[in-house]
Simulated assay, not measured.
Amino acid sequence: MSVFADLVQRLADLLTPLFGATAAAAAIVLFTALVRLLVHPLSRAAARGQKARAELQPKIAELRKRHGKNPERLQRAIVELHTKEKVSPLAGCLPGLFQLPAFFLLYHLFSNTTIGGHANELLSHELFAAPLGDRWADALGTGGALGPAGLVYLALFLLVAAVAVFNYRRTKRMMAANPVAPVADGQAVPGMGAMGAMTKVMPFMSFLTLFTVAVVPLAAALYVVTSTTWSAIERAALYR
Rank of each mutant, 00 (worst) to 15 (best):
L158Q: 08
A119C: 06
T228H: 10
G193C: 08
M174A: 11
M175F: 11
W136K: 00
V224R: 08
F31A: 11
A137R: 14
A161I: 06
P190R: 14
V152W: 00
G20A: 01
A91Y: 06
C93I: 15
K65F: 05
V216Q: 00
A220M: 01
Q9G: 09
P179E: 07
H40I: 06
P179M: 07
A176F: 10
A162E: 12
R36V: 11
L140M: 14
P182L: 10
N70L: 03
F128T: 04
V189I: 15
L105A: 15
V215N: 02
F157L: 08
Y153H: 02
A220S: 14
H118P: 01
V215D: 00
S124Y: 05
G150Y: 03
A162W: 15
L11W: 13
L140S: 08
V189Y: 07
E126Y: 14
C93A: 13
M174D: 06
L97D: 02
Y153P: 00
G20R: 04
F110Q: 00
L90K: 03
E126M: 13
A137Q: 13
P17F: 02
A61F: 06
L74E: 01
C93M: 14
G186T: 09
G49D: 07
Y239W: 09
L146E: 09
A26H: 02
G68R: 01
A177T: 04
P182C: 09
